[in-house]
Design a binder for these strands. Structure first.
Lengths: 143, 143
DNA sequence: CCATTTTGTTTGTACATACAAATAAGCTAA
DNA sequence: TTAGCTTATTTGTATGTACAAACAAAATGG
């Protein structure tokens, strides 16, 4: 490894993005049977868990920008999985019947993804890494 | 934290992407003075380090898809920082004078970024996390 | 009760990145 | 040597995500 390689592999920006791309590839595959992208699937999980959840809450939980959440919901409404009910300036989100039916396949896919990377990284190591990444991400997000 | 939160924060896909977005925000800020996005800056570093490097090698080192590297180079050529010389089916990349002059500001920005997140995560903890992420990313990329 | 500020959402636009298909060059083996 | 395989690059197109500006509703303070 040359000097420059060392810089890259010692840079959190570089390694974090590299990991994100790798795990995203895996996640897209795992969630393919649901017909949703992983992010859309997580949004569906949240709505199925808390019917009537507001968009702001979705942003906070998913750590996504409001505009991003608007478009995700647009897409999922268009595809018949969600319903948006405006209440004044806020709007609440509910799953349709079709959306509720996704709950099982999504849970399966999520489990499959977890197992898949646990196989490669080791279950304990993978979970530990996830916890550390989560902690770091929370710290950085506060700034 | 509800059950669903636990799922999110225990999911490597979710946490890794969340971290990547957070550190990317920071990196974009750190590299702003160079006029380049962080990824473009890393590509410039590689070319400045190894003049005449091939695109394939750039892909491998940056863990980026060939099409992505093509477009990055297109942009950097257009902006007058790189020169592409085709040799048969491969093509080699060289920095122009303007490109070589970016080396200093890029190195500064990189150092600034490192210091910035070291402040938040702790230097040792940040470097350790980076190393773990790097190892995980390599493992997942092999699959 | 109005004027101002704050909060939540949407729209326009842009960037990073990827995949699949197309193209082009080189390599191999009959 | 040529027919097909492999490798490198490019092009077309799509997705995820963001920022900034616009818009809309609510809250607050005079």
């Amino acid at each position: 490894m040359s000097d420059i390689d060392k810089i890259l592999h010692h840079c959190l920006y570089f390694t974090a993005n590299s990991l994100a791309r790798a795990i995203s590839r895996m996640a897209e595959e795992a969630f393919r049977p649901t017909g949703l992208s992983p992010s859309h699937a997580f949004l569906m999980m949240l709505v199925n868990d808390t019917p009537g959840i507001g968009q702001k809450a979705l942003c906070d939980q998913l750590h996504l920008a409001p505009s991003t959440v608007t478009r995700f919901i647009d897409t999922l409404v268009y595809r018949g999985y969600l319903e948006r009910r405006s209440e004044g300036k806020t709007s609440r989100v509910y799953a349709t019947t079709a959306g509720a039916e996704l709950q099982e396949p999504i849970a399966e896919a999520w489990k499959g993804l977890h197992e898949r990377y646990a196989e490669i990284l080791g279950r304990a190591a993978g979970d530990d890494l996830t916890a550390r990444i989560d902690a770091a991400s929370e710290k950085l997000n506060q700034t």
